[in-house]
């Protein structure tokens, strides 16, 4: 039995045919919460595989946060909180149902909207989303929350897959977005951890106009 079938039967990725389920499944296979053997039989998360995922760019990262699952899940599940720690995200508007519109920063002060829908959700454990059929950006992601050993809190694993879009705007976005997707994912998760553990995001700026945010705004206004 292939791991692909396995994963799809796991349910959450089922409707996400638009993104090419075979790829998605391979990449998403075996996160911390889904212990399934891969073809080559080791126990590492799928996204750490040395081989690529075709035309998709796949990013995965795990952090351990010293807070209970319930708290972390609740914060993330309110998508309007995501721009607090996801740097490329300008805002998220929840549309009702399981749909929301994510406004992503694009080069030259532009932005691009992506409509997403929740494709799977398990209270306190998992949230998975994907872009809807006619989106400019083909993406899906999932975040899983799992108790860490002892007093360590919660392991949070984020996996995101994108297919670089076609066209000029697409290429521009890809450049911004996919330049260093791994770095982006790592940084976003670290910011999430900071916000949850300390209530703020660390900065070494001496003055308010030297913070990263202020500098980015200055750049946009210029």
């Amino acid at each position: 039995m292939s791991h692909d079938t396995n994963d799809r039967s796991g349910g959450w990725i089922g409707p996400a045919i638009g993104i090419g389920a075979a790829l998605g499944a391979a990449a998403f296979a075996y996160t911390n919460t889904q212990r399934k053997k891969r073809d080559w039989g080791d126990d590492a998360p799928g996204y750490t595989a040395r081989r690529g995922f075709g035309e998709y760019s796949v990013v995965g990262r795990t952090v351990t946060i010293r807070k209970p699952k319930s708290e972390l899940f609740a914060f993330w599940r309110d998508f309007t909180n995501l721009p607090d720690f996801m740097e490329n995200l300008e805002k998220v508007a929840v549309k009702g149902g399981d749909r929301s519109v994510w406004t992503i920063k694009a080069p030259a002060g532009q932005s691009v909207d992506v409509e997403t829908e929740i494709v799977s959700e398990k209270q306190e454990e998992l949230i998975a989303w994907r872009s809807v059929e006619d989106s400019d950006i083909d993406t899906e992601g999932r975040v899983a929350f799992e108790d860490a050993p002892g007093e360590r809190g919660t392991r949070v694993s984020l996996i995101v897959a994108y297919k670089p879009p076609a066209g000029d705007l697409g290429r521009a976005i890809a450049k911004l977005f996919l330049r260093e997707p791994n770095v982006q994912a790592r940084h976003d998760l670290k910011r999430f951890k900071m916000l949850m553990e300390t209530g703020e995001i660390a900065t070494s700026a001496r003055t308010k106009d030297q913070t990263r945010k202020a500098k980015q705004q200055q750049k946009e206004n210029a």
Binding site: E200, A202, R206
Partner: peptide, 9 residues
């Protein structure tokens, strides 16, 4: 420049 309070803590 003089330092300022940036974060709540």
């Amino acid at each position: 420049s003089d330092p300022e309070i940036i974060n709540p803590r």
